[in-house]
């Protein structure tokens, strides 16, 4: 039940990211501020749930994004979303992270994720801009949006994932 709800909510967030967010972002900043809300939720699932759930959610929603917005390459989002969700889980799943901890983890993860994607695209010669420019142009501006989203959804998402992992733990004991 809870798992279904998580997937449904994440799908809704994925839809909103591509349809409602372009309207909320002011005109002229459309190519500079990119919402990566699904990624933020994947990182949260690594922090407050099990690492395997983060891996699963990351790979499946990353793949969904890759396929729906297929332009040049397939599988980048799937691989790195899954990988980064998993490693957040490996590093932080046993601790009870505080809000500051969680927000800073999300921030670093977002910078890393955007940078890795930039480097993959530049390896395949799809972009030819310098990294410093990409950092100023879209990686840092979008970081603020991601942090704001992380702050806004911190309480409900944490409840959702902690409830989920508690439920599975009880099931395991039975």
């Amino acid at each position: 039940m809870s798992m279904n709800r998580i997937v449904l909510l994440m799908f809704l967030v994925f839809i909103l990211e591509g349809t409602v967010m372009p309207w909320i972002i002011p005109a002229g900043f459309g190519h500079r501020i990119m919402p990566h809300f699904v990624f933020v939720i994947v990182i949260f699932s690594g922090l407050y749930s099990r690492r395997h759930l983060a891996l699963l959610l990351g790979v499946s929603f990353g793949m969904l994004q890759d396929i729906v917005y297929f332009g040049h390459l397939l599988g980048i989002n799937a691989f790195f979303m899954g990988l980064m969700g998993y490693f957040t889980g490996v590093l932080f799943e046993r601790r009870r992270s505080t809000i500051m901890m969680a927000i800073s983890v999300v921030g670093f993860a977002c910078i890393l994720y955007d940078s890795v994607i930039y480097f993959i695209y530049s390896v395949f010669r799809i972009t030819s801009e310098s990294y410093a420019w990409a950092l100023i142009d879209h990686i840092l501006p979008s970081l603020f949006l991601q942090l704001a989203f992380a702050l806004a959804c911190y309480v409900p998402v944490r409840k959702l994932f902690e409830g989920q992992s508690k439920a599975t733990a009880e099931n395991d004991e039975e």
């Binding site: 839809i15 591509g18 349809t19 372009p22 917005y69 695209y121």
Partner: peptide
């Protein structure tokens, strides 16, 4: 238009 991609290097529209 029904959606806009959120990838800075791949601004695909549907």
């Amino acid at each position: 238009v029904i959606a806009v991609s959120n990838d800075a290097n791949n601004r695909t529209l549907s």
